[in-house]
């Protein structure tokens, strides 16, 4: 068990390391140059001065070396300065991380709950009209472009009906619990709806599979709807793979969160990364992306461990 955990931890750390290098390299390929902004604010800089600045900031060194310096600093907790916010990266990152986690967790829980209700309902009578209807809804959830769903929500509930605020995390001058809640309703609904589709299909498939197996094993209840006992039993068996898949989908949940935040102007990681890339804020974009990767890796790790722990067939 401990060896398994250790191996998975090392693996995740390795993926993170490789990704940090890839992203570091890619960020350097984005348009512009960290010096541009500096130079732009000081009129009349000569090319020689720019070259000297480059040397001072180490920008003339080879990629590997620059990456190594960055890594060393990062390992000591120094992620650099955010250019667009003019504060250390961590100071911007921490609150954004919190916002995103809040959005993701609430949506995740909502999606899991909803998909279990829908998936089990559908699995009770596969092929029935309810199954068909739920399947349609699930497919819609998978197929809808998240940003467009957000746009449509804004159009209906904010622009037309004026029920909910279209953007932001809170109203300036209010910011109470109810206000924050009202700001979260649409983002959470959007993300949850988009996530529920895939989840529902997993729950349904897994339930049908286990129900079928259980039916064969107990060899009774032929033709009858499954009894409560069978259902509870099947549910327990179906849970393990389903929850694993759900946890493994944290990557796409994060992608969804990024879009949702951008659309509803929520001050989260997604919006932060997006804005950072648009404004050439290299340090912030880099750290933001790495934190996004880290969160996903941790979620996957947790899913793997939970799976190994729950499923007696896997020997650790």
């Amino acid at each position: 068990m401990n060896r398994f955990i250790l191996r998975r931890l090392l693996q995740s750390a390795l993926v993170l390391l490789v990704m940090s290098f890839v992203i570091y390299g890619l960020i350097g390929l984005m348009p512009g140059d960290p010096l541009d902004v500096m130079v732009a604010s000081v009129p009349g800089v000569t090319p020689e001065q720019i070259a000297r600045l480059r040397a001072i900031y180490g920008l003339d060194q080879p990629l590997m070396l620059r990456y190594f310096h960055w890594l060393m600093a990062a390992l000591q907790g120094d992620l650099g300065y955010s250019r667009s916010h003019s504060v250390p990266v961590l100071a911007v990152l921490a609150p954004a991380l919190w916002t995103t986690c809040k959005l993701m967790l609430i949506s995740f829980v909502a999606a899991v709950a909803l998909s279990f209700v829908l998936g089990i309902t559908a699995a009770l009578k596969p092929g029935g009209w309810l199954d068909g209807a739920i399947g349609l809804v699930a497919f819609a959830g998978i197929s809808v472009p998240v940003f467009w769903l957000a746009l449509m929500m804004i159009l209906v509930f904010a622009v037309e009906l004026h029920w909910l605020p279209a953007s932001g995390g809170f109203t300036v001058g209010d910011g109470g619990f109810v206000d924050q809640f009202r700001h979260l309703v649409m983002p959470v609904t959007t993300l949850a709806l988009a996530t529920t589709g895939g989840f529902t299909r997993f729950v349904r498939a897994s339930m049908i599979e286990t129900l079928r197996a259980d039916h064969i094993r107990t060899a009774r209840a032929k033709g009858n709807p499954p009894s409560r006992v069978v259902l509870v039993h099947a549910l327990r068996n179906a849970m393990i793979p389903v929850l694993t898949v759900m946890a493994l989908s944290f990557g796409s949940l994060f992608s969804g969160a990024l879009l949702t935040e951008t659309m509803f102007a929520q001050p989260g990681m997604g919006k932060l990364i997006y804005d950072a890339i648009l404004s050439n804020d290299f340090n912030l974009a880099l750290s933001g992306l790495l934190f996004a990767t880290l969160i996903t890796l941790l979620a996957n790790l947790a899913a793997d461990l939970a799976y190994a722990w729950l499923d007696p067939r896997i020997k650790l």
Binding site: V15, P31, G251, S255, L258, L259, G270
Partner: peptide, 26 residues
């Protein structure tokens, strides 16, 4: 291992970075 690593990544941020790459720099 590479495939698992890829699967673990949040794709959209990665795509955005790739989309932002300045082609003249490569």
């Amino acid at each position: 291992r590479v495939t698992d690593g890829m699967i673990a990544l949040p794709l959209l941020p990665l795509l955005i970075v790739l989309g932002a790459v300045d082609l003249t720099k490569i």
